[in-house]
Design a protein around this nucleic acid. Structure first.
Lengths: 201, 201
DNA sequence: GTAATAAATTTGACACTGTCAAGTCTTGTG
DNA sequence: CACAAGACTTGACAGTGTCAAATTTATTAC
């Protein structure tokens, strides 16, 4: 049976390219991601993405934005299952953070790859999506730390400490990546967080 | 004056390629690194590196190993200037960690890019250098945490906590990268570490 | 309904890159 | 000195990002 040739107008190519990129990432890691492969998977020619993205780096940032949306969902879902006490909320959100980094290991690392973040480097749609979604995901953790901040003199010390800790742990110890491999079992993050002995004020 | 054509035998090409790679990294970030550019900078043809490295990923790992050597030097130098007390030693080593991540921001991030770490993927010289240097740099921090470990039940909890914290802070807040940009000043890491209230045993 | 315009593609080309194979030059060994 | 091994060079190919021109489709105005 002859295959119906797709007409010139895709209809929702931007979204299709982002989804194709997420699939390629999951299947083969960040090195498997390319504009031409995304275009092929979306059923268009190699130059079609140029109308929607300001080059490969814009498509990558759009994928990062999508990752932040999923990331925030994980933390919010975890928070929803916890008791109202500040410690319980913070523990749950951190658990969601670590769970996402385990279950979406490649995407999580891809999200935090070093890249130049400047509005003039990306198309405006992608830039707006990225700033909204990354701020929203960070705000989940930030809100959870508020009850523990001690005052203006310390500024954001608790927030910075908690985010450093959970992010460092996610980068170094979660998922398949265990940069420091040795024979002793790595403690769960649930064992680490209480060691901070945080006090709500 | 006619330029003297380099004969076919470089003499120390492996080292020259690594140094060329470090230079390209400093000048233009990780995207500026390529086998052909390193070869050109070392004054050889594009295929010459193949005799010394099992592809681009081997050259990258050799650069990472070099980074770990420099990294360890930073922490050891910082430790050398501190008092003998466990707290002072740990604080100094963490300060060296953060200092390296600031002063060699691109290299530091490059060192911790996600990559597949399996011996069969690299030439044996590169693999050996990498395992030696990365173990050595990690061991500096590990040694500093030993006085604070509480016992077998906790395993490596303090070490994991401290490494997560300092690495997360270095990734998120040091150098030019400030992923979470907002108006309040980020506290120095020297303010964060005492919040752990670590007790030597 | 038609014409004009804009949007959304496709086609083709170029430069850069990694990798491979064959060939050539240099060094080391017997 | 001859041979073998090491260390390159040359040439080619596939994949990639990006650009420009051409083509098709959708939208808008009348």
């Amino acid at each position: 049976m002859t295959q119906k040739k797709r007409p010139h107008h895709h209809g929702n190519l931007r979204e299709a390219l982002i989804l194709a990129g997420l699939e390629l990432m999951v299947e083969g890691g960040p090195d498997a991601l390319s504009l031409r492969k995304c275009a092929a998977r979306a059923g268009v020619s190699h130059a079609a993405p140029a109308h929607h993205f300001k080059g490969l780096s814009s498509l990558e940032l759009a994928i990062v934005a999508r990752g932040h949306a999923m990331f925030a969902e994980f933390m919010i879902a975890a928070r929803g299952k916890a008791e109202d006490a500040p410690h319980a909320q913070l523990s749950a959100i951190c658990a969601g953070y670590i769970q996402f980094s385990c279950e979406h290991s490649a995407l999580f690392k891809f999200m935090f790859l070093p890249r130049e973040i400047r509005p003039d480097l990306f198309d405006s749609v992608t830039w707006e999506q990225f700033t909204i979604e990354s701020s929203a995901s960070y705000q989940v953790l930030r809100d959870a730390c508020l009850p523990f901040e001690t005052g203006a003199a310390d500024g954001l010390a608790t927030e910075v400490m908690v985010w450093s800790l959970v992010h460092g742990y996610a980068m170094l110890f979660s998922g398949q990546s265990r940069l420091a491999s040795h024979d002793v079992a790595i403690p769960d993050f649930a064992q680490i967080l209480p060691m901070l002995a945080l006090k709500a004020v």
